[in-house]
Design a protein around this nucleic acid. Sequence first.
DNA 1: TCGTTCGAAGTGGTCAGACCACCTGTCAAC
DNA 2: GTTGACAGGTGGTCTGACCACTTCGAACGA
Lengths: 270, 270
Amino acid sequence: MGRDGSIELRSFQVVRPEKNGLMAEQVVIQVRAMIREGELRPGDRLPPERELSKRLGISRASLRHGLRFLAAMGVLTSRHGSGTYIADGPPALDSEPLRMLAELHRFTPNEMFEARKLLEVGLAGLAARNAGDEHLAVMSEEVAEMYATLDDPQEYLVHDIRFHRAIAAASGNQILAALMNMVSTAMYESRKATVERATDLKESAEFHRKIYRLIRAGKSEEARFAMNEHLELAQRAFETEELSITTVPKNGKPSPATRRKRRSRSARAT
Amino acid sequence: MGRDGSIELRSFQVVRPEKNGLMAEQVVIQVRAMIREGELRPGDRLPPERELSKRLGISRASLRHGLRFLAAMGVLTSRHGSGTYIADGPPALDSEPLRMLAELHRFTPNEMFEARKLLEVGLAGLAARNAGDEHLAVMSEEVAEMYATLDDPQEYLVHDIRFHRAIAAASGNQILAALMNMVSTAMYESRKATVERATDLKESAEFHRKIYRLIRAGKSEEARFAMNEHLELAQRAFETEELSITTVPKNGKPSPATRRKRRSRSARAT
DNA sequence: TCGTTCGAAGTGGTCAGACCACCTGTCAAC
DNA sequence: GTTGACAGGTGGTCTGACCACTTCGAACGA
């Protein structure tokens, strides 16, 4: 190794054949490794930044960049004055990225709805096959709450969402559940506005009850069908509402935002 | 209730609508606003960090934290020496969070596969209804490439993935396409290993061709069915492979991993 | 004894300024 | 016209200090 020690300035680089750029990336890799090895588990607290930065041989600033990155992915949460913790609770994906993506690319609410529909229908089918008693109990509970809050749209929406979330949990597939929640959450703002003007929450509640019973009975295909019907109804309500809002102004050119034509775009594969 | 209101300690919250915590969060909000207003569009370059930090009245370090956050969400990419750019190209969600989540919660590959199946089947159905000529052309091309690379599994896999990606693009729903790609990418490592030991790539290619033809013919239901069949086949191949690896030791009990029963799991609603 | 208060220690959040590493366009030399 | 060196701009990293918040235990009071 020729460690004569005259010039050691860059020795730290030599140790590292990779010479990977981006110190922050190193942090991600390290933490990820710790998770994979089982060294870090959900809910655990990480070592203090000052210590961790020393251990990894990088500045605290760089370490923090890496942690920020992980926090954005939903893997970590930092609590001021307390520490940095591995996310716990049910597995969940942050919906913020999806919301951003939607704004960047001007996704239509309809597209969002369609995505949700596909996921929810599939989940309903799975739930009919896999739901356990405790999930069924939650669903039943939420249906009851919906009936009880027919005159309070906002509250109704909360139980609506919880009901669908229970179905997702009952499906037995946490990934699909996480995806559905991501989409659902990204749509929350819109739904909050829509439900306020809803005319027939009772009908909606009936539908939920019907879906619940089909899932409980283990009737997969029928549960799928009912869920599909339910969401298409909701989607239609949503669409008409959208129109009634966007058509308000006296602008002669209604800006054909909904028009859809085939775009040719440079692919640039990576 | 006895709310005589003698204690007003918490008024500080009311007086300060601004000064919200987390400077980095401010950055996210600001950039997001710029995107929403159309001030920033995909591919655009952001102002230099030194300038932007001044404009927002925060230190460069905090600004960078915020940018890091956005980068993690896939909204930005920073190029050393060049600048910071809004992500361009087709809308995509980073698969890293999903991969992390999978490791944190020990998702089974089967769950991942099931999620993928649900998405792909749905996408195939949509593609049959919405596919344009240019998408069909890409799909056709990739099928041909698959036949041409039957003896090179790794290369085959590339075209396999591109084919499915083309279907997603043809579905007309960018959100679902992004979700599918996220799941698919997260599984890439596993698939790379599986395809290497695949025995009958020809059969796989046949299936892809069949799916392509059904999509081109606009036969939605049949395309869905074929896709489902195709993926269940692949899943089975994957499972047996998993077993052949994990069952290596002389363990007498083959661990009935596929058995499925109602699990009772603490729900912990949030 | 029990409950409350308060303060010190620990931890994440922010700041400032400097320097390094890399990219890009320019312009001189060939 | 082509090539090469160079200078400016830009993101990446480091340092060290201070601020803001949480936590917990010791001192205090009932």
